[in-house]
């Protein structure tokens, strides 16, 4: 269960405080999924950091039950360039003191699922951006989190790989019954994966609308009329904001 109630956040810049998030309120139920969408710089990453406990709100309440069992995929993947792909993926388990064999088996399985078999010995710097994102995803999943926070995890993938991984995320979410929060720039991605969609507006970031989207994650949802109309709705809400189109 995630509860955010009137949360505000600012960053101090040379004495002055720059407000980044203003009066944010929403909730995500256990095993539910939530997509956060909004223009660049509106505070999506900051909001995710609040949820993951990496930042504290200046005012208001952020309560995340099971935060200590959460995993996170950072916007720029956050891979360690000095560790191989396999070491990166297995790191969470290693830190928890898992047996070497368990780590190796888990890493092997996840690399397979992510279509990265055979790349375990490479360094992140030798992989494409999309492959690095998949490594980051594997690393977050390796520790079997109860809550998964994802900051634009699929932004540099080609359309087909992206859909395949969206399906995989949906499978993980429904199959392992985890709670997830996904930050994205893509309207289609938000609608496909977020059962609840938080639409943020810019400067300071505030909630424009909370959209319920109960069909999210369904296998043929993308081809349905409901999907199409939700996407149009989101586009209108974001456009109404007047910040121009986002890429």
């Amino acid at each position: 269960m995630i509860t955010v109630d009137s949360a505000c956040l600012g960053f101090s810049h040379g004495g002055a405080t720059l407000p980044v998030l203003h009066d944010i309120s929403f909730a995500v139920a256990e095993c539910d999924s939530c997509a956060v969408i909004g223009p660049s710089g509106c505070g999506k990453t900051s909001l995710l950091f609040l949820l993951a406990g990496l930042l504290r709100p200046d005012r208001g309440v952020v309560e995340v039950v099971g935060q200590e069992q959460s995993g996170m995929i950072l916007q720029n993947y956050g891979l360690f360039p000095w560790k191989t792909v396999a070491e990166n993926v297995g790191l969470g388990l290693v830190l928890r003191g898992a047996a070497r064999k368990t780590v190796a088996a888990t890493v092997e399985r996840l690399l397979g699922e992510m279509g990265l078999s055979g790349f375990g010995g490479h360094f992140p710097g030798q992989l494409s951006g999309g492959m690095q994102q998949r490594v980051a995803m594997a690393r977050a999943l390796a520790v079997e989190p109860r809550i998964l926070f994802m900051d634009e995890p699929l932004s540099s993938l080609d359309a087909l790989t992206r859909e395949r991984l969206q399906n995989l995320i949906a499978e993980v979410w429904l199959g392992k019954r985890i709670t997830m929060v996904l930050v994205t720039h893509s309207i289609e991605e938000a609608v496909f994966l977020g059962r609840r969609i938080v639409v943020l507006g810019g400067r300071p970031g505030r909630v424009l609308r909370l959209v319920d989207n109960p069909e999210a994650g369904g296998s043929d949802y993308r081809d349905s009329d409901v999907f199409f109309h939700r996407c149009v709705l989101l586009r209108q809400i974001l456009k109404g904001e007047g910040d121009g189109p986002e890429t």
Partner: peptide
């Protein structure tokens, strides 16, 4: 970022 990344892994 590296600190954030390792922090999310619970080190």
């Amino acid at each position: 970022n590296y600190y954030l990344a390792i922090e999310t892994l619970g080190a």
